[in-house]
């Protein structure tokens, strides 16, 4: 269990309403320091809204989210967000997009920013593609640039909102392995929103299961599988039992 590590992100009794619709109902959870946590659930269970609240893009109707003990009131560079669509600036190259994010770092010269951007792009396997425009990159590569952009400025928490949801199955698997490798090497606090149970089990230390209408936490499952993790883990009985357990929780009393 990794629950003894320091609390990094704390969500306390968060409720979020959009008019009459209750997207989140009294949600409380914590993310430990350097812990990788996934949130899974059927579409409409409010998992993306939860991420938006922590990212500071949506204010909660009630309750609060805090980072390192400080209540969050808006977005900031202490949290990096990878969106479902890569949202790369089309007029900038892959390198330019990462460098763009680094402009907010004080005291970095342009050369230092470019060096840093090259370094992070190499980390996600994009060396040689620095000068390509987003329109010249595949969907998977675009999402790698987006990941590099968020990693580049070293946020305390990485928030990922179904980052591989729009990719084909093979590319998605590759990206999950890449993400796991990068995380195992650089350890940071991650919250990954996904509807892919395999993705959640494969990447995470802990999986949070949400149920819809209103969005509630159904269960929290610690994933005690050894690291480093490789693709062949997915065929093992241990992996499969986590998979079926989570699947059952999602479908249980589902409306």
């Amino acid at each position: 269990m990794t629950l003894l590590t320091a609390r990094k992100v704390e969500v306390a009794n968060v409720t979020k309403q959009f008019g009459e619709v209750t997207a989140l109902s009294d949600i409380s959870l914590t993310l430990g320091q350097n812990e990788f946590v996934s949130v899974v659930g059927a579409s409409g269970c409010g998992k993306s809204t939860l991420l938006s609240v922590i990212a500071g893009l949506e204010p909660p109707t009630a309750g609060s989210a805090s980072l390192g003990g400080h209540v969050l009131t808006g977005p900031g560079r202490d949290r990096g967000v990878v969106f479902q669509s890569a949202t790369l600036l089309p007029w900038l190259s892959a390198l330019g997009n990462v460098e763009f994010a680094l402009r907010g770092e004080e005291g970095l010269t342009k050369k230092q920013r470019i060096d840093r951007a090259r370094e992070v792009l190499a980390q996600v396997g994009l060396d040689g593609f620095e000068d390509k425009f987003p329109s010249q990159l595949s969907g998977g590569m675009q999402q790698r640039v987006a990941l590099a952009r968020s990693l580049s400025y070293g946020p305390e928490v990485l928030l990922m909102d179904e980052p591989f949801g729009a990719l084909d199955a093979l590319t998605r698997r590759t990206m999950q392995e890449l993400l796991t490798q990068v995380w195992e090497k650089h350890r940071m606090t991650v919250m990954l929103i996904t509807h892919d149970i395999e993705e959640a089990v494969f990447t995470s230390d802990r999986v949070i299961v949400m149920t819809p209408r209103p969005g509630r936490i159904r269960a929290e499952i610690p994933i005690e599988l050894d690291r480093p993790r490789h693709a062949d883990l997915i065929g093992t009985p241990a992996f499969h039992s986590y998979y079926t357990e989570i699947l059952a929780l999602i479908h249980e009393r589902g409306h």
Binding site: A55, G56, L57, G74, P75, G76, R77, R79, G80, V81, F83, S85, T87, L89, P90, W91, F100, A101, G104
Partner: peptide, 26 residues
């Protein structure tokens, strides 16, 4: 797309910076 504004916000840009550096060029 509004996701571009959200991106700017998460990168710590002010509303004016988001307009000038992201929205207008887009």
């Amino acid at each position: 797309p509004s996701s571009f504004r959200n991106l700017g916000a998460t990168l710590g840009l002010s509303r004016l910076q988001i307009l000038i550096r992201i929205v207008f060029p887009s």
